[in-house]
Design a protein around this nucleic acid. Structure first.
Length: 648
RNA sequence: GCUGCUGUAGCUCAGAGGUAGAGCACUCCCUUGGUAAGGGAGAGGUCGAGAGUUCGAUUCUCUCCAGCAGCACCA
């Protein structure tokens, strides 16, 4: 029997017969480790304790204390236990796949009857029974033909299809939790009783397409969350509750920012408070982009289909466009227009007016461009995914050699804006050439190289998304996260040689000949709507003072202070602060509560003492403490705070 | 768009085959109260829209619309 050498984390090497399992190694190290072991990392791979080890490797034995591995195993075993429970309760259910995801797992089932919320309780109960049985987990490696036969005989067509989709011809790993069987890569725990029975919860039922393909069957997906202990589960559920309080739809109502109604799905009625945030942000962006070398433009909303045909959008996105037909009495044919779904073709029209010289490049055009897209009904989400929105759009016309510098310039611009708005963490994804594309490999090499060099020059991390670029060029996407961890694309930077080509954009080069410019599509916030949604959730409604729609409420404690309240409000307004008076016949407690719920950052209470001393009692949102300060000082300080960061 | 769920007062929700209720918000009165809800009275609803079953529908059935969760989509 061949010998292999296994190196432990402490550097010690041990010699074993090839084919020994990690479970046996753990038991050999110590009896207690043998009992506590749940899995191992062998040569960098996560190993089941029952798998044989055939070659020299570094090995680390894991116990429930190793959060990462323990969570993976617990969640993965729960996926199997849940599938078993479902099939025990409803034997006609077909199983498909059940992977581990962030905080838990899901499993997709095919069953004629829909699962109900009450069913979740039944399934949970059955799962706990299975856990209490401490059924052994067993694994074997089968050849394909045997596995296919097995699933055909058991009436599990999805499993047969999965096997067909696994490339190559290697044998397959089979797992049993008790008598219940599943095709699975593993690893798993050793028996069902190792799963903490009080640290998981089934969360929701939803539809999901088989293999993520909308042309195929709709399955029923059950989501669960699981942790290694019940305290961690509780903390997670708590976090979700807190996150729900930050939902921009809820805060939008509480702060009286906007509303939506069914006559205009996916479009926003901005209330005075919300529009104040919007315009304050827009004014800020206008100054920022002007300072960064952009020229602001504005283009039409309703544009003849001819332009969309020329740009290629009519062909590809017609069903996502709002079509406007105009029938004029004397017209030979009725005009068919579309509300613009994007601004780029219009910007090319501006570029195309008059001859452009290489001396004009890079030409940076910016527009707060209102766009309308007929998004699928199921995609709509508060103000984050809407049908009517305004991009902080911009297009840079430049030469190939200017791309890298423009990209670096844009990333710095974006980082500065995000920083001012309270986001220091954002994710950059670099999407490169897809299979279906236009342009030469040489040109792709050059452009991708330019983007990569530009990001690297900023020293920021990025993740590579190979094949995710647009058909015409690579792109960078910038992502922010909402209250419950959903990730939203905000900024973008895309290199496009295609649209200038289609719409005939040219410039006169140094050589006197016409050349084709590159077009860089870029947006920093993405859309004001989505960005404000994220801003609300990120700050839990406590917007930075300069952005807060209602900055200060001056509240009287007794009506004797009313005149002074007016004086304080006027003083603050003169200092550039959005201040309002609250002289209602209500107790100060009541006023403080109401304006706190409304997320007003500063409440100034004034009563007899303040009138006497020309002071105000300052209370900041979220603080329990108040402090009495001279009015002049407070007006000064708040005036500064009310100034947008780029003007301080 | 797909699967499932939901739709009752401005908001949060209760209710039942015999034409509707609470709390908060709103209006008025009393109260002048020192930092997250003082007291009283009043007003407010085509029970998402349409059709069907029924003596009678807001309640049951169907269709549509919108919202929520997830999937698919996101130029």
């Amino acid at each position: 029997m061949a010998q292999i050498s296994l190196t432990l984390p402490d550097g010690n090497a041990r010699s074993y017969d090839a084919g020994i399992t990690a479970g046996e190694v753990a038991a050999d190290i110590s009896k207690s480790l043998g009992k506590k072991a749940i899995s191992a990392t062998v040569g960098g791979a996560h190993y089941d304790l029952a798998w044989p080890i055939e070659a020299d490797a570094e090995i680390a034995i894991h116990t429930m204390q190793d959060e990462e591995q323990a969570n993976e195993l617990v969640r993965h075993d729960l996926a199997h236990i849940m599938a078993r429970a479902v099939q025990e309760i409803w034997p006609d259910t077909k199983v498909t796949i059940g992977p581990v995801i962030k905080d838990g797992w899901y499993y997709d089932f095919d069953r004629a009857e829909p699962f109900t919320p009450e069913d979740l309780g039944l399934i949970e109960k059955k799962m706990k029974e299975i856990i209490n049985k401490r059924d052994p987990v067993r694994t074997e490696v089968w050849d394909r033909a045997r596995a296919v036969k097995f699933y055909e005989d058991n009436g599990e067509p999805y499993k047969v299809e999965l096997i067909d989709a696994i490339p190559g011809d290697e044998p397959l790993r089979m797992y049993w939790h008790g008598e219940w069987q599943d095709l699975c890569r593993g690893p798993h725990l050793q028996h069902t009783g190792q799963v903490p029975g009080d640290a998981f919860k089934l969360m929701s039922i939803a539809g999901a397409y088989w293999r993520g393909d909308s042309d195929r069957a709709m399955l029923q997906r059950i989501y669960g969350v699981a942790f290694t202990g019940k305290e961690k589960l509780r903390a997670h559920l708590n976090m979700l509750e807190e996150a729900a309080k930050r939902d921009h739809r809820k805060l939008g109502r509480e702060m009286d920012l906007f509303h939506m109604q069914e006559e205009a799905p996916g479009q926003i009625f901005w209330h005075p408070n919300g529009w104040n945030v919007y315009t304050t942000l827009q004014d800020y962006m206008r100054r920022k982009q002007r300072a960064d070398g952009y020229k602001e433009v504005n283009t039409p909303q309703v544009v003849d289909r001819k332009l969309w045909e020329a740009s290629g959008h009519w062909d590809k996105y017609q069903e996502h466009m709002f079509i406007v037909e105009v029938e004029e009495e004397h017209a030979k044919e009725k005009a068919i227009n579309a509300l613009k779904p994007m601004n780029c073709p219009c910007h090319v029209q501006i570029f195309n007016q008059g001859l452009k010289s290489y001396r004009d490049l890079p030409l940076r055009l910016a527009e707060f461009g209102s766009c309308s897209r007929y998004e699928p009904s199921g995609a709509l989400h508060g103000i984050m995914r809407v049908r009517g929105f305004t991009q902080d759009d911009g297009h840079i016309f430049c030469t190939e050699d200017q791309i890298e510098a423009e990209c670096a310039k844009f990333i710095n611009y974006l980082a500065g804006v995000y920083d001012d708005l309270g986001f220091t963490n954002f994710e950059i994804k670099f999407a490169t050439r897809p299979e279906q594309r236009v342009g030469s490999d040489e040109s792709w090499d050059h452009v991708e190289g330019a983007l990569e060099a530009a990001i690297k020059a900023t020293g920021r991390d990025f993740t590579l998304e190979p094949g995710d670029g647009a058909f015409y060029g690579p792109k960078l996407d910038f992502y922010l996260t909402d209250a419950i961890g959903r990730v939203w694309q905000c900024g973008t930077f895309q290199v496009d040689p295609n649209l200038p080509e289609r719409l005939g954009a040219t410039y006169i080069g140094e050589d006197g000949a016409k050349h084709r410019p590159y077009m860089l599509h870029r947006a920093c916030l993405g859309s004001f709507e989505r960005f404000i949604g994220i801003l609300i959730e990120e700050h839990a409604g406590k917007l930075p003072f300069w952005l807060a729609p209602r900055q200060v409420v001056v509240a009287s404690i007794t009506s004797d202070a009313d005149d002074y309240v007016v004086e304080v409000v006027e003083t603050l307004k003169a200092a550039g602060v959005r201040a309002e008076a609250d002289m209602r016949n209500e107790k100060i407690n009541y006023k403080v509560r109401e304006h706190s719920v409304g997320k007003v950052p500063v409440i100034l209470a004034v009563g007899g003492r303040e009138v006497e001393e020309k002071t105000v009692s300052v209370r900041r949102l979220g603080d329990k403490q108040t402090s009495v300060q001279p009015l002049a000082d407070v007006a000064n300080a708040l005036g500064l705070e009310a100034t947008p960061p780029d003007l301080r």
